[in-house]
Structures are given as C-alpha cells and as structure tokens.
Design a binder for these strands. Structure first.
Lengths: 229, 229
DNA sequence: GAAAACTGCTAACGTCGTTCGCAGTTTACA
DNA sequence: TGTAAACTGCGAACGACGTTAGCAGTTTTC
C-alpha cells in the first residue's frame, strides 16, 4: 500500500487532475508526455493495436511495467493520447463572421485531424471523461454559436452531433475503397442490383461533407418556424 | 493440413458463403446458430467483452477450442452475431406512403435494435464485409427511396449516413447520464461556464432524433435548387 | 474394409494488461 | 545529520485472452 503509483492515494479521479509525480525520489527518467508522444507515434505508424504497453515501453528503452510509474492503466494512456491529439486543433478560427461558416471550418479541421490520426476513431467512442483540450474545443464551439438564439442544450446536442458526423465521414474514408458488398448473390437483392445496373455517372458530389454538416447544423439550431414556409 | 475446419480448404472467403459442415464425420453436437445465439445472450446480459470464446463455449457446455470446429475466428463470430441481430429488423415496413416517413420508421427500428443490443455499437464499426441481413436491409432502403430522383451513389451515401447518425444517437444514449464534463475547472472555459449558468429550461426537445434524421435525409437527397428559395 | 474427412477434447502457445517485490535514490523532518 | 518515508527502475510473474496442435473416436465414401 506504500507503493501507490503517481496518484498519491486517491486513484479514482481522472488522469488530468492527478499530479505527474510527487516531491521525493529520484527524478524520473521519462515523463507522461514522452510516453504519450511515443504511443502516438506508434499508433500513427502501425495502428492502435501496435501501441501496446510493451511496444511503447520498448520504444522508450524501458520495460512494460515501468510505464505504470507514470500512468495507472492503458486507458489513461489512451485518454492522454486523445487529448494531446485534439490539442492539435489549436489555434481555433476566430469566432466572427457567419457562425455556420466558422463551424464548418471547425468540422473541416476535425476531419483533417482524424485523417492524420486514424486511431482517434477507435479511441474516441469509449465512455470516458473528456480532457482539457476537448473542453477547450467545446468551449470555442460555444463561443462561435453565441449569436445563435437556441437553447444551451440544443447547442450541446448540435456540437456533439457535428463531431459525430465528422467521425462518420472519417470512418467512411478510412474503411477504404474495398466495397463491403462484395461476394453476395445479387439476385436476392433486386433493388440493389437495379441500382447498380443503372448508369451511375461518376457524380463525385463535390462536397457531400459540407452539405451534410450545413443541413445538420441548420436543422438542429434553427427554429422550425423560421425555416421553409 | 488435413485438419482444416469447416471451410474446406479455401479459408479466406467470408463466413456467409462457407458451408457449415462437410458430409462425413459424426453429426456435430452444436451448430453455428446455437453458438451465435449463446454469444448474443452473453453480450446482451454482460456486455461484449464478456462474450469471450471461453465463456461462449462454457455456456454451451464445451471448451473454447471446440468452437473452432464451427468458426474460424472470433471475428467470424462477431460478424455472425451482427447479421443475426440485424435480422431482427424484419419484417420491414411497406415502402408505400411518403418515403421520408418510411425511412424515419426504418431509422426508429434501427435505434430500437441498438437499444436492445448495445454491443452492436462496438461491433458495427469494424472494417468487415456485411452479411445477408444487412444486404436485405440496404436493399429495402433502396426500395423505399425508389421514388426519389437522386443518383444511386447519393442514395448509398444517404443510407449510410442515416445508419451512422442512428448509431450516434444510440451511443449518446448508452453513454448514460453521467456527464463527461465533470471534474474540470470551469474558469478556464468561459463560454462553457456562461452557457451552464444560463437558465436552461428543461426543453427536452421532444424529438431531436426525428428532426435530425429528417434534415439529414432531405439535405442529402433533395436537389439544392428545389429547397429554400 | 480401408482411407478420407470429419467429430470433440485437452493441453499448450504466445501476447496482452497488469501486479509484485526488490534494490537503489532522493526528500522531509526530527 | 540521520533516519524514515516516498519515490525510482526493473525483472519476473500472474491471469485472461484468441488460437493451434495433436489425439482418439465416428461417419461417410469408394
């Protein structure tokens, strides 16, 4: 019990509020941030499953067990990786101009981030408290939405939904070109077969992303009576 | 090499096209479907991580290794579980009436399915070929969308995006009431604090789900020039 | 009737996250 | 100044996981 790691006794609070180290003992050979950086590098290069405790430790020249002097679990590491990556979204675009345009820009930056760190998609949907960088991002979205007369909860929902839709696009991209419909007997799916047999002009749909985000945000943040007729 | 399981030599094709068993040998004590059913029961009751090979085997009164006479990997099992669950969506609503209303009904059924089988959310986003039940569902969506004059690819995108949005809602629900913003010093996030301090009327937003799905589908399937002014 | 193709089953392998215990180092406090 | 407390790194191990190998028995094929 006198051998508690890094969290000085009360080990159930989230990693962000826990001090990195105490005041006694030798100066550590590594740091939380160095570990997180190494893990991100591994996940970027070879995918999230490659970022095992052992692999991260090896890339830092130490052993797996040693990491637990800095983190209390692998989940902590994933949380830190996530927050550090989301920190790359800064600096944020200034919240003047049309709020929809600015939000779309935020969404675009998010999509670019997911392209840069595909493992974020696998990590993001774990039930886990969000970190300070995510808080900052959320805070900035609220700033952008300040001129919008919707309720606070509506804005929360809209931001969350936008983030989710961005992740859907990123996932669709990441799944790649291999179509998941391969290997089926199309005679059992007549409308599918008919749709495929139609002359499908390439129609790359120049900016499906923009249209989706715009229609989503206006749908969620514009009172019903001010839209349409 | 003469001990290949169930796939009779060429083991790289998807599980759905592979025969369940050959013609010789004793009649198997179990079946693919019984295994899948047991795995679903476990995942429903105790979550996906509880549905390990060992646990599934134990609940069937056998050992882990025995399952590999029926499946070639755990991924196969997850694929089969997914497809069987999606099969619960049948029978589908008749594709007459307003296509948007019918699609919304399909989305509602999907949401109910995700509530019934929360593990689907963790399983669905793996890169994996889809099964016959998913094909049938997709096919039916295309049938519903037949009166819509959009291109085939636009319909594909719209269906995929609707499915994704439904999963986002289900995930938001499943994450539960515990707010992920707990434990942060709100003075660092002024707009967040301001938004929280505002008198937030309950405003339960009676049907955010419906509004979101509707605005998404109309946004993706209605030509731009026919909307607004 | 013999070979081939299956069956169930036990034991093991390798990898994973994590824990334990030990020896050494630095700080806090008498 | 000295001693106890709190730390440090490290190596070995634990338990659980997915998966494989090998064996003995059973059914079909020819």
């Amino acid at each position: 019990m006198s051998d508690a790691p890094t969290d000085s006794g009360a080990g159930r609070q989230p990693i962000w509020t826990r001090p990195e180290r105490g005041t006694r003992g030798p100066t550590p050979a590594h740091s939380r941030d160095a570990i997180v950086q190494a893990a991100i590098a591994l996940a970027d290069a070879e995918g999230l499953p490659a970022a095992t405790m052992r692999a991260v430790a090896t890339s830092l020249g130490t052993a797996a067990g040693s990491l637990y002097r800095y983190l209390s679990s692998r989940d902590d590491l994933l949380d830190l990786m996530t927050d550090r990556a989301i920190g790359e979204l800064q600096p944020y675009p200034r919240p003047d101009g049309d709020w929809l345009d600015t939000m779309l820009l935020m969404a675009r930056r998010q999509l670019a981030l997911y392209r840069r760190h595909p493992w974020l998609l696998e990590v993001l949907h774990r039930p886990s408290g969000i970190g300070p960088q995510s808080m900052a991002w959320f805070d900035h979205c609220l700033w952008i939405l300040e001129p919008v007369p919707s309720s606070t909860s509506a804005k929360f929902e809209a931001i969350a939904m936008m983030t989710g839709v961005v992740s859907l696009f990123a996932r669709n991209e990441a799944t790649g070109t291999a179509n998941p419909f391969a290997g089926h007997d199309l005679t059992a799916y007549p409308h599918f077969a008919a749709a495929l047999s139609r002359t499908t002009p390439p129609a790359p749909d120049q900016d499906l992303f923009e249209r989706t985000v715009r229609s989503l945000l206006t749908g969620l943040l514009t009172p019903t009576w001010s839209r349409r007729a």
